[in-house]
């Protein structure tokens, strides 16, 4: 079935792909409004485009394509507004932060760890130093071996002696690839 002239088909294709010029768009829309056959051809092509695109995206597990990125221009008044808002937030942080005072020092009764030094007002507080837990030396892998089996196991020692978490791997997928010296 081929209802349209090659020129019309090309115009419809450009129109659907967003490649038509404004003049071409107006031309096609006015022709479609004046001629039911052209309107029908345009509607059918658009519907097939939409449905086939949707089917392909589902099959390829894709979401709708994002529209082309456009850089939004920021007016200078907006820029000044953003800067003022940032300055206000900074001032609030500055005023609400604890500062050294000359009053009585209650902290002398109970020794407090030194507060971590922060590089910036906006930097997150530094994490405390990790504590290394002493592990019972007896807490080791079991001296058990499986023989004559194709199964693969991961053995993880548990908290209590003699207890282990066993994970059986049904499918172990590995692939060896050549590693070059310069890559």
């Amino acid at each position: 079935m081929n209802d349209g002239s090659p020129e019309l088909e090309r115009l419809i294709s450009r129109y659907l792909d967003g490649e038509a010029t404004p003049a071409e768009r107006r031309d096609l829309e006015s022709r479609a409004n004046a001629d039911a056959a052209i309107q029908s051809l345009l509607a059918e092509t658009a519907a097939i485009d939409r449905e086939v695109g949707r089917a392909m995206r589902i099959a390829m597990r894709r979401t709708l394509p994002l529209p082309a990125r456009r850089v939004k221009k920021v007016h200078w008044i907006q820029a000044v507004g953003f800067a003022a808002a940032a300055a206000c937030i900074g001032l609030v942080f500055f005023l609400s932060s604890p500062r050294p005072s000359n009053g009585p020092k209650h902290s002398a009764q109970r020794p407090q760890p030194p507060a971590p030094v922060r590089a910036s007002w906006f930097a997150p507080p530094e994490r405390p130093v990790d504590v290394v837990e002493q592990v019972d030396p007896a807490d080791v892998r079991p001296q058990v071996r499986w023989r004559d089996t194709d199964r693969h196991w991961i053995v993880i020692p548990a908290r209590q002696k003699g207890q282990f978490l066993l994970i059986q791997m049904d499918r172990l997928r590995t692939r060896a690839i050549r590693i070059q010296d310069d890559f």
């Binding site: 079935m1 081929n2 090309r10 419809i12 059918e44 097939i48 449905e51 086939v52």
Partner: peptide
């Protein structure tokens, strides 16, 4: 552009009447 026009023409021929407009 030409290949896209032809792809659409072939799809229209194959799917005519099968897609709700």
């Amino acid at each position: 552009e030409t290949r896209l026009v032809r792809a659409r023409r072939l799809l229209r021929e194959m799917l005519h009447g099968k897609v709700d407009v």
